[in-house]
């Protein structure tokens, strides 16, 4: 069997991490969101009112909660899995290819689940009582194709960012992630200095697809970084 396929199976070996944990985190956040909505309801806010909808759709809690887990999963997919993959006989090339494919599978899985739940949420008029879990601004405000793209790119970005930091650790120890973090801060700082004079015009001209391009760049840079860092990494 191809070592790439075997590496994907290695990542999928802990099915709970790939398939259950993201849903349980999302479910927990959904329950918390519902409880918060109930508090507002009891405080006098009316489901279906403009203020209710505006407030509910502005809650990005589900995204924040998942991002932390997904970055951890990205780190774990390289930091602790890489030494074991080499022990089993995977090449570095196959490991990175398999890991990136697993990243994509996980991103597609979560995106599809979210899209299905978004469709159900819309079809049931927000679960029959006006609760907004997936129909929120940060996930496309109910636009299912947009949600699919946002969640897929977002999850893939988080996993590959975690992966590249872990790859730096595997290759250079604790200094690796530190250098990447400093480098990212430096680049963002230079970019901020360059664009601040035109910030107002840029914000006015902002298009949503810019974020998709940015996510694509992050995913590509992180993936290439993972490969460059791991291809000569050794296990000690």
């Amino acid at each position: 069997m191809s070592a790439v396929i075997s590496t994907i199976k290695l990542h999928l070996n802990q099915r709970r991490v790939t398939f259950i944990a993201p849903l349980s985190i999302a479910g927990t956040v959904a329950i918390i969101s519902v409880l918060i909505s109930l508090v507002f309801w009891r405080a006098g806010s009316q489901p279906g009112s403009a203020g209710w909808i505006q407030g509910s759709q502005s809650n990005p809690g589900i995204v924040y909660a998942l991002v932390g887990f997904l970055i951890y999963a990205g780190v774990a997919s390289v930091a602790t899995t890489f030494p074991f993959a080499l022990t089993l006989g995977a090449t570095r090339r196959a490991f990175i290819a398999g890991t990136l494919l697993w990243d994509a599978i996980t991103a597609a899985y979560i995106a599809i689940i979210f899209a299905v739940l978004n469709v159900i949420e819309l079809a049931t008029h927000h679960w029959g009582v006006g609760f907004y879990i997936f129909d929120i601004y940060v996930l496309g405000a109910g636009n299912t194709p947009r949600l699919l793209l946002i969640v897929f790119l977002g999850v893939l970005s988080a996993l590959t960012i975690g992966g590249v930091f872990a790859a730096a650790w595997v290759r250079f120890g604790i200094r690796g992630p530190q250098v990447i973090a400093v480098g990212v801060i430096f680049v963002l700082g230079i970019a901020a200095i360059a664009i601040v004079p035109d910030a107002a015009a840029i914000i006015a001209a902002f298009q949503l697809w810019w974020l998709a391009i940015a996510a694509g760049v992050v995913i590509m840079v992180s993936s290439i970084g993972m490969w460059l860092l791991v291809r000569r990494a050794i296990v000690r």
Partner: peptide, 30 residues
């Protein structure tokens, strides 16, 4: 590499791995 088995004395395993995870995945590589 598919013909070599080497488990180092300080071998690290993926987080939360249990014995059945090892026994389930190892045949794919060996």
């Amino acid at each position: 590499l598919s013909k070599i088995s080497f488990v180092r004395d300080n071998q690290r395993y993926p987080d939360n791995y249990r014995l059945h995870h090892v026994l389930r995945i190892a045949p794919d590589f060996a």
